[in-house]
């Protein structure tokens, strides 16, 4: 099946069987390896991407569902100012993520902070529970999220 969609702001198309999962198509067809292929069951969250400006687990999306939609992966997000906010926030808070979860954690934090500009406790918890990895303490991550949120607010004001 020929599927046309926008990938990281560029229109593209791919000829794949329609039942393939989006995670596999992005990794195998486009070599976008920032999203990991881990549990394959929508549990770990390491394959999160942005589909039409919404976070989704790409292992739970059959590729035919992305026809005509826009997909953003961490590789695309890394070019944005939002990514810089997360980078600065995590660096300042001393968030040492492991190689495996770092890209997805960055993406989910960045995108959800667009929605929750000043996150409250419940919203922080929502950001934390989008990705399941044990590498960094919740306290450090919370600090990183709050710092990122402050940096973003400052940037948006200026």
């Amino acid at each position: 099946m020929l599927i046309e969609f926008v990938l990281n702001d560029e229109p593209t198309s791919v000829e794949v069987p329609a039942y393939k999962r989006l995670a596999d198509v992005l990794r195998e067809g486009f070599n976008l390896t920032g999203l990991r292929s881990a549990c394959g069951k929508g549990y770990c969250g390491l394959c999160t991407v942005v589909l039409n400006e919404e976070l989704v687990y790409s292992c739970m999306i059959p590729v035919f569902q992305i026809r005509g939609k826009s997909v953003q992966t961490i590789e695309g997000y890394a070019e944005t100012e939002g990514f810089n906010d997360v980078f600065e926030g995590f660096k300042e808070a001393g968030v040492h993520l492991c190689d495996y979860c770092a890209p997805t954690r960055t993406l989910t934090t960045g995108i959800l902070l667009d929605r929750y500009v000043r996150p409250d406790a419940r919203q922080i918890e929502e950001i934390l529970s989008s990705v399941k990895c044990n590498c960094t303490p919740y306290e450090t991550l919370k600090k990183g999220i709050l710092l990122t949120s402050q940096i973003r607010q400052k940037r948006l004001k200026s």
Partner: peptide
Amino acid sequence: MDEDKFRNRLAGGIRFPEDMTS
């Protein structure tokens, strides 16, 4: 930690065995 390395890590630049092809 080296800033570029940290940025690369967050940006998904680190490759794992399942990412390798030849």
